[in-house]
Design a protein around this nucleic acid. Structure first.
Lengths: 159, 159
DNA sequence: TCTGAAAATGAGACGAT
DNA sequence: ATCGTCTCATTTTCAGA
């Protein structure tokens, strides 16, 4: 991806509601050109959408935790993500290499809610859990590092 | 927080670029009233900003990993988050309870880049690392527990 | 706090270079 | 691929209930 597109994505990652006017003068193009590039970035899936950044403290969900899970019976089919998808407290679900099968990021209102959630996870997916409580979050969901352009492709020898 | 505000936050979490017109008819208020509520939510920090959702695959950062770190020398002052903040590959930094001190979420282009990053982390913060590679991400950064109305339509690819 | 309407701004489309 | 202009939707402000 080229430099201007990287700059556009970087800017929209910091402020997803930037106007095309502002965006245009930041990257040094006309409004129309920027508008077109953004549309292409959206079509190609580089930008998959826009969302509001929320404060979980303000939303009364001050307790964050990681929950590592592994099947109680490893011979059973592994469909934990689908079985857990209905639990709104689960923010993210990662399939991981290592001792555990999945790593969940969960957000709840209180230790009591965490306890309830863990019980639901265990029964819904038939798994054991190992939970790591988050004490604080120095930073989270930072914009991706877009500064490093890609080295040029080697010359095409097929001609 | 009251019901209408929750609905507004939920809707903006799914689509951060919803117009006030759409927002208004979803929650059953006038455009002005919704606009005013959004402004107050932003002022109170419930909504801390807006960002574009990006595809890390499309950004050529297909490799995600969790890096648990703990100090090489526990008697040293613990300022790992600041020492690591300049590393753009680090998406998030959580201070956690348990055996480790911090849990980092990192995104890189390749195993070689992961290796380089781990070396940088170890030397920059004087820590040992334990890395868990993410194989796939069934879901990530879901809207916080509020009744989710409707996912936004996918972009029209028929062009 | 909500409403409705006016004024300012931005989005989205078009044809031209 | 970019540009400038056009039209229409949206944002934003304001007085009033």
């Amino acid at each position: 991806m080229e430099e201007i597109d990287r700059a556009i994505v970087a800017a929209l990652t910091v402020d997803g509601r930037l106007s095309y006017t502002d965006l245009a003068e930041r990257v040094g193009l006309s409004v129309s050109a920027v508008h077109q590039r953004v549309r292409r970035l959206e079509q190609r899936g580089v930008i998959s959408g826009y969302t509001a950044r929320v404060s979980y403290e303000a939303l009364e969900l001050p307790l964050t935790a990681f929950v590592a899970i592994r099947p109680f019976d490893p011979s059973q089919p592994d469909d934990a993500p689908e079985r857990l998808a209905h639990l709104a407290e689960i923010d993210s679900c990662y399939s991981v290499a290592g001792e555990d099968f999945y790593l969940l990021l969960v957000r709840v209102a209180s230790p009591a809610d965490l306890e309830r959630l863990l019980q639901e996870i265990r029964t819904a997916a038939n798994v054991t859990t190992r939970t790591t409580v988050v004490l604080s979050t120095p930073y989270e969901n930072r914009p991706p590092g877009l500064s490093a352009p890609k080295p040029p492709d080697p010359p095409d020898l097929a001609s």
